[in-house]
Design a protein around this nucleic acid. Structure first.
Lengths: 69, 69
DNA sequence: GTGTGACTCTTAGTCCGTA
DNA sequence: GTACGGACTAAGAGTCACA
């Protein structure tokens, strides 16, 4: 499976499981809301720095966002 | 620990364990050799697409390159 | 609350060489 | 066999508007 889609789904799942909107996550991770949307729709190849920021904002490990189904 | 350093060390370890030089890995993963060097010295925030390519070229999972010590 | 287009700026990633 | 530098090109990342 495409790694972008893996990240997309894991990010969305993790985000929803803590009850954050894209807006809240974006604010906490200090990225733009529209960029969170692009990651969750697999439009971009997110960098590991940003991935780590998102993971931290969600209280999960970066590795969790790469977990395959 | 800085995620760049985690990736740097894991990549170098995985690469050496299969006996590849940076050159060989670069060729197989279709990235520039100098860029492999920059990743292994934590100079850049590699994108997940490239990370996946490197992992595949080494016969490991992308997730393995993010494993913490 | 989310996805997307258009734009800008920064950085990823390439290609050369050199130590 | 590896690190680093400069000069480039592609794409990540930021900002804003609109459906």
């Amino acid at each position: 499976m495409d790694i972008r889609k893996v990240v997309a789904r894991n990010l969305r799942r993790a985000r929803r499981s803590v009850g954050f909107s894209q807006e809240v996550l974006a604010e906490r991770a200090k990225v733009d809301r529209s960029y969170v949307s692009r990651i969750e729709t697999a439009k971009v190849s997110v960098g590991i720095d940003t991935l780590a920021n998102l993971a931290r904002a969600l209280g999960v490990r970066p590795i969790d966002l790469l977990e395959e189904p």
